[in-house]
Every structure is written in structure tokens, then in C-alpha cells.
Design a protein around this nucleic acid. Structure first.
Lengths: 199, 199
DNA sequence: TACATTTGCTTAACAGTGTTAAATTATTTA
DNA sequence: TAAATAATTTAACACTGTTAAGCAAATGTA
């Protein structure tokens, strides 16, 4: 009776269907909108059967996260073997990382908790502009070129922001790491950017 | 009849109470756990009256976001006036930004969408280690020192990750900005770090 | 003072969420 | 064919945000 295996195969298939359906829903309407009943609808079952394949909703998310890491690793590996020199490999891998984030945006959000669930449309607050300005003004003060290239100011601001925000959010997610060490990293990175602000 | 104003003052007070209660709940149990009924409980009312002060739940979040920006701006300003030289001002402001993120962690999460709602406890996946390793290996390849300082490798990896992740998540949140320009920023930043990897 | 009106607040309800237990249907086994 | 097992659904529970209806107290008006 080989039907045992056939059934096993079918079960494995619906398991994958659940994951696919979940990701599809997220691609359409975001993580906020993902629900067990919607997944069930998509695979043409009712909600409770999902619990025969996953412990709960988080189980689905964990599985998708795992899938994300596997894909990411493959892309990194592919990028690495395209170069000989370590410095080229490193740059290539980080570019691959970057590309992964946009190609698999939903998975990246899941993996690294970049969730803009709250305040769906962050329409630039007037209050947020003030903070942008006070920093950009100082960047301008540092610039020797005349007239000042506003585009460059904006880019430098972005670089600063990315470094600091990245360090912060990674600290939030991986909260194990020592804070003073990271503050050291931050200070070094800042000094580096400031030093070469006129490039 | 000065009672009009007294009532106005009371209303303003409960409005603030709602915001305080919301933030308190989030501090205790995270954004995921915030609910209208819990807020109502805390201010000793029932849920519907909150809608007399805010359009909906998002209205509360928006107000807290605004508060966050106001506080952040004040901290930046305070940091700036403590220095004379622009480069010191800049470093001071970014350090203030950093400190703000940890001092007002919940507000920062709200403002910049750093939400680890999904997968509450991201227990280091084996799959995630593979991606960490493939990059750290390459960083080691680049290092001239012998024996290799593992701590430094880790720190360099963190720096890379922060820059890239920061740039990505800021691109997600502020999706208006041009992608190719950011890729340019990224490439420059990467080259910079790689260049000074032995410092 | 007596009535009408506005205000403040609550209860009840709706549609949605994740999740579990019971009931039901379909399939396999004896 | 009858019993046992598996597959799937229905019903329910405790939540969620949100709205409408109802009530009670305070206020305005005669």
C-alpha cells in the first residue's frame, strides 16, 4: 500500500501551500493583514486545519523566517564565488544582502523586524522636519564648498542616519550585545564620516 | 461662569492621561499588547470615551509619535549648544540621537517602525548563523593582523550590518527616495569601511 | 420650581482576530 | 457490511477596534 507515502506527499504539499498563501497575502496587503482565516481561504480549507501543520501563527512566521535565512545565505554564497579578492567578495556580499532585502522585502521585514505597522502612512511630520534641519544645518557648517551642494548635504545626512539607526535597531533586535562597546563603534563610525564629509 | 474653563482643563487632562496610560502599557508589555480597553481600564473609563479624544487607535499613536519628535528635537538642540565646533556639534547630536533611542525606546520604535512584533523571541536560528559566518570569514581574510582578533571581526561585522540594515530600513520607511542614489551611498560607505578595516 | 436639552458615560453590539473542543463527514480497516 | 480511524468543519471562547443606542446626571430655559 504505497498510498501512505502519497498521503504524506499531499500533506507536505499543503504545508507548503500554507506558507505560500501566507506570503502571498503579505505581499498583497502587508503583515498587518495576515490572518489564519485568510490563509485558510486561500488554500480552500477552514482555519483549524492549519493547526495540524503548524503549532500556531508564530510557527508559520518562524518557518518563513527560516526560509528567508536560507535564501539569503544562498545569495551571499553566489555573490562571494563571483570574486577572487576578499575585499571584492565583501562588497559583493553586502550588495547581495542589499538586493535580497528589496527582492524579498516581506521576508526581510520578518527577519529583521522592520515593521511599519503603526502609523501606516508616516506623512512627514512638521516636528520631524525640525530634527532633520538642525542636523543638516550643522552638516552645512562643516562643508567647505561654496556654494553648498544641497544634494550632498542630504546624502551625508542619510549616511549618518543609516549608520546610527542601523546600529540602534540591531541593538534592539539583538539586545544581548554590550551597549558601551556599541557606543564605541558608533563614535568611531561617526568620526569617520565627519572626517570625510567633504569627499 | 469659569467652570467652562475648568471642564476644558479636565478634558485636556484626561487626554494626556490617555497618552500616558498608552505609553505605560507599552513600557510594561510592548506595542503588541496595547489595546483600547486596557487604556480605558487604566484611566478608569470605558473604551468608547477614548474616541471623544482621539479619532481612533492610530490617532493615539500619531500623537505619541509627535511627542517623540518634539523630545528628540529638544535633546538634539541641547546637545548642539554644548559645543562650539560644527564637527563636535554633529558628533554630539548623533550621540544624543543614540541616547534618545534607548531612553525613549518605545517612542523610537514607534517613530521609526522598529517593531519586533513577529517572532517575539528571535532565538538565533542555525540558519542565521550561516549568513553571519560567511561574512565574518571574509572579514578575517581581509585582516592582516596575526593572530586575528575575533572581537574586532565581530565589531567590523556589526558596523557593516548596521550601515546596510540602516540604509535598507530607512529606505523602507521613507520609500520616496531614489533607489539608485542609495545604492551609490551604500557602495561608498562599504568601500570606506573595507578600506579602514585594519584600524 | 418644572421641563427640555445637552453632556458624560456605559452597555450592547458588530465584525474581526487566534485558538480549542466537539461534532460531523469521509475513508480505511476488519 | 460494520467498526474504527482519519480528515475536516462547525461552534465556541476570549480577545481586538469601533459604532450606535441608551441612560443618567448636569445644565439651560420657561
Amino acid at each position: 500500500m504505497g498510498s501512505k507515502e502519497r498521503i504524506q506527499r499531499l500533506k507536505e504539499e499543503t504545508r507548503l501551500n500554507i506558507l505560500d498563501a501566507a506570503l502571498e497575502i503579505v505581499k498583497e496587503d502587508g503583515w498587518q493583514s495576515l490572518s489564519m482565516r485568510k490563509i485558510a481561504d486561500k488554500i480552500e480549507y477552514t482555519a483549524p486545519i492549519i493547526y495540524e501543520y503548524f503549532a500556531n501563527k508564530e510557527g508559520i512566521l518562524l518557518e518563513l523566517t527560516r526560509k528567508g535565512y536560507i535564501i539569503l545565505f544562498q545569495e551571499l554564497k553566489a555573490a562571494k564565488i563571483q570574486h577572487e579578492l576578499p575585499q571584492d567578495q565583501l562588497e559583493g556580499m553586502w550588495m547581495a544582502y542589499w538586493n535580497f532585502a528589496f527582492k524579498y522585502k516581506e521576508l526581510y521585514q520578518l527577519m529583521y523586524g522592520v515593521d511599519m505597522s503603526c502609523c501606516e502612512v508616516i506623512k512627514a511630520f512638521p516636528e520631524s522636519e525640525a530634527t532633520t534641519n538642525i542636523i543638516c544645518d550643522t552638516i552645512k557648517d562643516l562643508m567647505t564648498a561654496n556654494p553648498i551642494n544641497d544634494d550632498l548635504v542630504c546624502r551625508k545626512y542619510f549616511t549618518f542616519w543609516s549608520v546610527v539607526h542601523g546600529l540602534i535597531s540591531i541593538n534592539f533586535v539583538r539586545k544581548g550585545t554590550d551597549n558601551t562597546t556599541n557606543q564605541h563603534i558608533l563614535r568611531d563610525a561617526l568620526k569617520g564620516i565627519i572626517k570625510y564629509i567633504n569627499d
